[in-house]
Design a protein around this nucleic acid. Sequence first.
DNA 1: CAAATCTATATGTATAGACAAGGTTATTAT
DNA 2: ATAATAACCTTGTCTATACATATAGATTTG
Lengths: 256, 256
Amino acid sequence: MSEQGSFNLDQAEIDKNSVIPIYYQLAKFFEKQIRQRNLLPGEALPTETEIASHFGISRMTVRRAISELVAAGMVYAQKGKGTFVAMPKLDNIVFDLNNFYEEIKQKGMKPNSKLLEAKIVRSDELLSKRLGIPLNTRCLFFRIVITANDEPLAYERKYTVYAKQKPILESELKDPSLSSLAAAHSDSLPVSSKKVLMVSRTTEEESLILGVSRGTPVFLMVQTLYDLERKPIAWGLSIFRGDRYKLTSYDGWYDE
Amino acid sequence: MSEQGSFNLDQAEIDKNSVIPIYYQLAKFFEKQIRQRNLLPGEALPTETEIASHFGISRMTVRRAISELVAAGMVYAQKGKGTFVAMPKLDNIVFDLNNFYEEIKQKGMKPNSKLLEAKIVRSDELLSKRLGIPLNTRCLFFRIVITANDEPLAYERKYTVYAKQKPILESELKDPSLSSLAAAHSDSLPVSSKKVLMVSRTTEEESLILGVSRGTPVFLMVQTLYDLERKPIAWGLSIFRGDRYKLTSYDGWYDE
DNA sequence: CAAATCTATATGTATAGACAAGGTTATTAT
DNA sequence: ATAATAACCTTGTCTATACATATAGATTTG
């Protein structure tokens, strides 16, 4: 299970007499191995003692190197078990446009998400290009409205390849984030994503669903999820009512 | 200059027999001192040797504690000089809407900023409320247009109190960020900020300056800068052309 | 057979000491 | 007086060691 020791350290070039610190060389080596997918998420790094004796360096120096990776969020250590490559974090709060529920609840409102539609579609040219799949591939399509106190706040359309032929579970529809949908129905797991935030105007359909007049300015977020091979596995488009949504960020670290 | 040793360590309660690690207690102590403004930005922490001997602990343990603060960005260490409390970072890339120059240059375009107006105004009711100052206080007012290849991209209006009666330097006008303007002309230094991002439509004036038709959707960013006492010292409003600006963010750490 | 205990192994914390390298200040030589 | 040098202080790197603590598997015990 832990696959300890299955990884090969021989290709590492550590120069103990270099001006570059050993811990830094070592950290960069592991970082490279992870980036190049020679060490996959979940896999264990060699133990600290193994690494130390392999390179003839102190265990503390190894720990210093690994602590850099821990700080970067690329690996995590478990006392008594080992050190493992982390799953890349998705659904980050980069734009803070996700995590509706928490944000809405914090303002004392009642959050809810309503599924308008969930069906299997055949990919047209545009979707095939976006997901990197052949024409007429079967895909899942979702239309969702997020409300606060029954007032529409956001409207989302999401596509993911329909590989597993699994039925759509009710539990998935409670908070159907793009990454959980992709994880459930696609062949591979999402490990990275791209988000693009734009401003736009509502179309006729969007105006109707959000209950605003046509051409109202809105936030438009396009999100693409990728697997380990950088193949897109899910694509989503979210529209946030501009008159109801603000993105706030604070700098500085003082209390109060 | 370095004020080494001016800070008192006696109020720290470090329990060497606690289950909580010493380095953690020590890090939390310094964090608290910084948050409560007992250690001010620019001030030096006691030297590692001083701290170690004061508490009767190893220097490596002290270094472990300080490294936590360094990782958090609250202090920075300089070899040969000492460890200092960092200036809270402003103009963060939270929204990535600042740092025009770098972004525009990276796309092979020619960035430029043109000062439309710079004058001293008397604060009206709204501005007095925003800056927390009496009515009719003298303030500096700037109007700036940022262009890429001579095409307008953003339009900014900025206010800051005019405390120092200093003339406006040409150098300030090259890239007049809100925090540098405030630092130059206000009594106090900005240490924290709030940014709010919204979508809006252009007014008549904004349309003219940005060269778009009236009512075009735009990003609207309102930024307030605060000093140590949480008093607002500068206020700015930026408008970004929605048809020319995208905010992109990537998750995951794989190359290419 | 199942539960408790032991044992080996992993990371976590802490120590004391050595030397390197950057920075400041005092001293010395010109 | 000025410039080069030396002494000293700071953080940075690295080692070797010790013990603590969590985990998993083997062993003993009921």
